[in-house]
Simulated assay, not measured.
Amino acid sequence: MISEARISRGSQKVIASVVGLLCFFIIATAIPSGVLVMSAALVAVIALLTVWVLRISVTIEATGQNLTVRCRPFYSKTIPLQDIIDASPAASSSMIEGFGVRYLGQRTWGLLVGGPAIVLETPRRTWLISTPDPEYTAASILNHAGKPRGQITAY
């Protein structure tokens, strides 16, 4: 495993607080309206989905021929190492704040949990992938791909 990133504790607390207030509001309005059972079921579903979202992790793993990027539990993609053009730390921006799998436009996909990230370029698309240590992760990916830093292959 080259890298694993998770949603920060601070972000988890904010999400849990907002969802908790939402669930409280649903139950508080359900009691006088007489739809408590249906509302309680809705709150249970929201709570389960929230727990699932709070457990998102982004991983990058290398094998002999491939790089596998995952946004667990939602998405996984295997990229042949020979297709890697470049990997570098991403500039800090609001685009790296967010969670999950995202299409960011212009053939760019994000696997994000907020915080620092790398930019991984392949012939078909560009990836923005969360990682706790962008410098190490980018260098490790290039090393696995057999491309020293600074060597960019044109396609």
Rank of each mutant, 00 (worst) to 15 (best):
W127H: 09
P134A: 01
S92D: 13
G34T: 02
P80I: 12
S17V: 10
Y136A: 14
S130P: 06
S17E: 04
I26M: 12
F25I: 14
S57E: 09
P132S: 07
R55C: 13
T122N: 01
L112T: 05
P80G: 06
P134W: 02
L112E: 08
A44P: 04
E97I: 13
L142A: 00
T126H: 05
I60H: 01
A30S: 10
P73N: 00
E61C: 03
D83I: 08
I141T: 01
A117F: 01
I46Q: 06
I141N: 00
G20D: 07
G34R: 02
Q65I: 15
Y103P: 05
A62G: 07
L112Q: 05
T50C: 12
L21R: 06
N66F: 11
G98S: 06
V45S: 05
A40H: 07
V45K: 07
A30Q: 02
V51Y: 13
A30K: 01
S76L: 12
V18K: 08
A40N: 07
V51F: 10
W109N: 09
I96A: 09
I129S: 04
S88V: 15
V119D: 09
M38R: 13
G115L: 01
A47L: 09
V69W: 01
S33C: 05
Q106S: 13
S57Q: 13
T108R: 10
L48D: 06
M95I: 13
E61T: 06
V101P: 06
P134E: 04
S92N: 14
V101R: 02
L120R: 00
G64T: 14
S93E: 06
Y136K: 11
I60C: 07
R55F: 13
N66D: 12
V18A: 15
L22E: 09
I60Y: 01
G114A: 08
G20W: 05
R72Y: 15
V19L: 07
R107H: 11
I129A: 08
G114E: 05
K77D: 12
A41H: 02
I31T: 09
G34F: 00
G114S: 12
W109Q: 15
L48K: 09
C23A: 13
S94E: 09
L128K: 05
I79G: 02
I27D: 04
A138E: 04
M38D: 15
V18H: 07
Q82E: 15
V58D: 12
L67G: 01
A139W: 03
I79E: 03
A41W: 03
L142P: 01
S88L: 14
T29V: 14
L48R: 15
I129M: 10
I96R: 11
I27G: 06
R70I: 05
I85W: 04
S93D: 05
Q106M: 14
T78A: 12
A117E: 04
I141M: 02
